[in-house]
Nucleic acid binder design. Structure first.
Lengths: 333, 333
DNA sequence: ATTAGCACTGGTAACTTTTTAGTGCTAAAT
DNA sequence: ATTTAGCACTAAAAAGTTACCAGTGCTAAT
């Protein structure tokens, strides 16, 4: 591919992104000061290389997945946010008052507003969380709340009605034993070690140890179950995209959004910004997912932007780069 | 309306529910041993009364909202669940091990499975909740968890990073004061009384009382904000309904489902089963909402089934009646 | 290497025709 | 007094026409 061909590919991708109409040779004449015939020749060449596609013999060209990929990797230049957008994000990130989860949540909302795509956060993956503390808070004679906290600052509570034959101080005692033995254990290994290490000990000291054990077991189990938090913002932005103009597509994408496993699958541990275009996105062939990891005061997760394959990549990349930079700044504050 | 006309109306409503096609006179001849002409006459009469409608001059009849209503109130007979369905529900309701919220959640899932409609629960309305206890659980020097519990057994937690100049025992002391003064206060009045009654007291005893006050204020505020829990099950069942075969309708109903205020609006305090057909449902003219209150060990809420106006009312009513009965049973256990 | 010219193509939109499933009404039959 | 057969009529849906448009690829000339 020579320089002119690259320019042409870039132009085609970008006009297609804007117009959503197959790009014909005529429209490009002016821009390149060439006749439509020449452009047609070049287009045919780019098609041979697999960067462009045609819907049918006599239609204009649209970028193929390979074409989008080449564009993102080699031709696109991330676009800076405008001042207003920057300001909005900055005030959120540097507001130390906000709880972390709120910061992320508000950030998501802004992302979906300024991109007009859907944003998803996946946070609190339990795998990297270790136990910091478990507490028993009595409410009345029949109820206690079990609090589980992790080193990353996640807290979950679960209420239990306790039968008469269990005494609250037995629960408290057990929680102290757990705290002594298991602090620092990865949260998804806690149940196992609870059985192997804690159960033998409490069996000697506590009468109804089976029932007590069950309560803690349930509390931790609950924690692992709810471990990946999914939060969407701007779900319906997806439906506003003109590619979703027919019933089947809409139903399809909605079902995909509801499919937790599919959504969780977005999570990545790679650093930097990753793009998954079309089929790679696992959602559907019209969708692109762009994502990046975040780590905000120890709470880690993935931010993803889900939009049409025909996405404004420059804007999205500019946005995510900006967010990454702000997060980095905050780390050093 | 004589007996025959009622029978006819019933038949028309039920076949329309099954087929979704305007019902013509011919198809009913066999059932009634009458000629199509006679049936046409009767239909014209029912139309005059407002129970039936026509799409255009020469189409079959469809039930009007008034028609559906008359059907539900006078003609329909709730249909018993089959054994399998009953069993599924019973095992959930009588499993005392399950936490209340899990019971409801599983119940929802079964409802949407056996009806093929969407189910919604609205629970934990803060209005009827009063404060039972607030606790401060320290995590480390910079973080505490504030736990708020209500008399109905709802617990929420919120983590705070606390600045160096606040000491944890000041927070604990304040929580004790709150517990002394405000237990039994309706949860949405707590913030107010916090300012009027608690703030003056702590201002004398605690140095950084403003910051401490803020922390508790935020904790209660959070509680009220999250007070009505909305939980959907089988959202996409709605899209499977053949009335949602065009883009506009689909987008519309999806947006309605996302509109919290609209959904919260379902909540009712009436006893028994209520039906809101078509426009009454506030969702859209094709939708019916059938709902009932539940009270499970003190946790109250509303269960609603959202489906097309052309809903299998007999099945839905049978189902909700069964659930009500089971809930009543459980109360007396 | 570029371009003008031309035959060709598949999709779209608009219009027409045909078919279909129903209606209401009248007059005759029960 | 009901019920029914028969017929003219209707709106919508389906199928068929036609014309047009926005493109293409290829060839021959520049």
């Amino acid at each position: 591919m020579d320089e002119r061909q690259k320019e042409l590919l870039k132009e085609i991708v970008e006009t297609y992104i804007k117009t959503i109409k197959p790009v014909g040779s005529k429209g490009l004449c002016d821009k390149f000061n060439l006749s439509s015939a020449t452009i047609r020749n070049e287009m045919a060449f780019l098609e041979q290389l697999g960067y462009l596609e045609k819907n049918h013999v006599s239609s204009g060209r649209i970028p193929s997945e390979k074409g989008y990929k080449y564009y993102v990797e080699n031709l696109m230049k991330p676009k800076e946010l405008n001042g207003e957008e920057m300001l909005k994000l900055q005030t959120i990130f540097h507001n130390q008052e906000l709880q972390i989860s709120d910061t992320i949540q508000e950030c998501m909302q802004i992302i979906s507003e300024i991109t007009n795509y859907t944003s998803v956060v996946l946070g609190k993956s339990s795998k990297e969380n270790t136990l910091r503390q478990v507490s028993i808070v009595p409410i009345d004679n029949n109820q206690v709340v079990a609090l589980v906290c992790t080193d990353k600052g996640i807290v979950e509570n679960k209420t239990f009605r306790i039968p008469d034959y269990i005494f609250i101080d037995e629960l408290v005692k057990t929680s102290e034993i757990i705290n002594k033995l298991l602090i620092g254990t990865p949260i998804d290994e806690v149940s196992e070690r609870l059985e192997l290490e804690v159960k033998p000990i409490i069996s000697k000291r506590i009468k109804q140890y089976e029932a007590v054990y069950e309560i803690f077991y349930d509390a931790f189990n609950d924690f692992t179950k709810n471990s990946t938090n999914i939060f969407f913002s701007g779900k319906s932005n997806m439906l506003k995209q003109p590619e979703y103009d027919n019933v089947e597509e809409i139903k399809n994408i909605i079902n995909k959004f509801e499919d937790e496993n599919l959504v969780k699958n977005i999570e990545s541990i790679n650093d930097g910004i990753n793009v998954y275009i079309g089929d790679e996105s696992k959602f559907d062939s019209n969708v692109t997912v762009v994502k990046t990891r975040y780590n905000l005061n120890g709470e880690e997760g993935t931010i993803a932007i889900v939009g049409p394959k025909r996405m404004e990549y420059d804007k999205v990349f500019g946005l995510l780069e900006f967010i990454n930079k702000e997060l980095e700044k905050r780390k050093n504050e």
